[in-house]
Amino acid sequence: MSDYNFAYLDEQTKRMIRRAILKGLAIPGHQVPFASREMPMPYGWGTGGVQVSAAVLTPDDTFKVIDQGADDTTNAVSIRRFFQKTAGVAVTEATTEASVIQTRHRIPEQDLRADQILVYQVPIPEPLRFLEPSEVETRKMHALEEYGLMHVKLYEDISQHGDIATAYAYPVKVEGRYVMDPSPIPKFDNPKLEMAGIQLFGAGREQRIYAIPPYTQVVSLDFDDYPFLPTKADHACDLCGAQDSYLDELIVDDAGGRMFMCSDTDYCTTRRKAGHVGAQGVPYEKDAA
């Protein structure tokens, strides 16, 4: 443990964040303003997610942090260490063992259980921001449920490209009311937004918290003749052979040769431990040795 308070933040700050989380859960998809604090890591590194995690964690939790689906990316390592040090919580890389998972840009492949909490790091919480830069205006649009601009944008995509040209941070409508930014997850992950676990979203720099309670209706925006499609690279994982997981693409030689592997490192490792081997993989025991 350290000289700082449990989970770093002072109690008054945690209470303020906790109140925002409860209102967020009561109004799914609505962005609740909160007085985000300066954290000892930069804005853009997940300060919103870190503050939400700090307000949510208990000493009994087992905490997992992923960035791009991976537990061993440097910023995931850094955030995991921060809470090991300040909250003394147990940590894990196994999705099934975690009670609280903080994530940047992915939802784990493994379905989350009712007793699990997923905390998202959010850079720009406002789904309308790139269509209307003014916060005063976008807040009005949400108040009036005036989402025409978003449909126009998607429609213009179709007329220009023949397809909706949004591949990540794909907007969703929550419980038939608020249009919400699911954070920059690939649209492949959107169907998983309807889940058994509690989902909390924290945007530190933009001072917003929002939430999706379990079993809440989350619909990706689309058109009847251009239905939403959660796509991924048309490959199997070269390490574990999974056909159903989101893939990272790697450049493996000077000639520009490519290989694909699961972005969710725990999913990949679990499969490899169970004996699955992809086209370019080695059996797990051999790799570990």
């Binding site: 308070n5 449990f6 945690k14 949510v56 208990t58 009994d60």
Partner: peptide, 8 residues
């Protein structure tokens, strides 16, 4: 801080 964490 601990009691409030469990309670919350």
């Amino acid at each position: 801080s601990i009691d409030a964490a469990y309670a919350f």
